[in-house]
C-alpha cells in the first residue's frame, strides 16, 4: 500500500521504553571507504572500511501523571556526578510505524551531548545527540 511517513508514524524507544513527548529524531549512517587505487588504474577504486552511526533526538521536558520524565532520564546520562562508564550505553530504537508493522533501526549507543534550557514563551525541551557503538542490532526498514 502506498504510504508517506510523517512524524505521526515516528517513535523513539530507549532501553525498550517508548519515550513520551518526542518532537524529533534523526539518524545518520556513514561508511568510511579505503582507497585501493594502484598504478596503472584508470579509475579510483575503494574498499569498505568502518561504519558509523550517530543521531539526534528532541524531547519535551515533561512530567507525566506518574512523574515519569524521559527527557530528564536522558539528560542524566551526561549530567551525573559519578562520571560515565563504558557500560553506560543505551539501546536506541528508531521506529516508523505502519499499522502493526514496525520499521526499526536499533543500535547500542552512547549519549554524547545533551542540551536543555528555558526560554520566555517556549516549552523547555532537551536535545540529545548519540553515537552508535558496534554494529546495528536491527535494521528492518
Amino acid at each position: 500500500m502506498a504510504k508517506y511517513y510523517t512524524g505521526r508514524d515516528g517513535r523513539l524507544l530507549i532501553d525498550g521504553l517508548e519515550q513520551v513527548k518526542v518532537t524529533n529524531w534523526s539518524l545518520t549512517g556513514s561508511l568510511e571507504v579505503l582507497e585501493t587505487t594502484t598504478l596503472s588504474d584508470a579509475q579510483r577504486s575503494y574498499t569498505p572500511g568502518v561504519q558509523e552511526f550517530s543521531g539526534t533526538a528532541g524531547l519535551l521536558y515533561y512530567n507525566d501523571a506518574a512523574n515519569r520524565n524521559d527527557a530528564a532520564t536522558a539528560l542524566k546520562k551526561i549530567f551525573k556526578t559519578s562520571g560515565v562508564a563504558s557500560t553506560d550505553t543505551v539501546d536506541m530504537r528508531l521506529r516508523l510505524v505502519e499499522g502493526s508493522t514496525n520499521h526499526d533501526v536499533r543500535l547500542t549507543a552512547y549519549i554524547t551531548s545533551v542540551t536543555y534550557g528555558a526560554s520566555v514563551g517556549e516549552v523547555s525541551s532537551a536535545q540529545i545527540s548519540f553515537q552508535g557503538t558496534g554494529a546495528l542490532t536491527e535494521a528492518s526498514l
Binding site: G7, R8, D9, G10, R11, L12, V20, K21, V22, T23, N24, W25, L60, Y62, V97, V120, G121, E122, V123
Partner: peptide, 20 residues
C-alpha cells in the same frame, strides 16, 4: 494569548500549550 506547539511524534492532532 500565545500558544506553544507541543505536538510530539505519534500525535494525530496538533497540541498547544498556553503561554504568555
Amino acid at each position: 494569548r500565545e500558544v506553544v506547539d507541543i505536538t510530539a511524534l505519534s500525535d494525530q492532532h496538533r497540541q498547544q500549550y498556553s503561554s504568555l
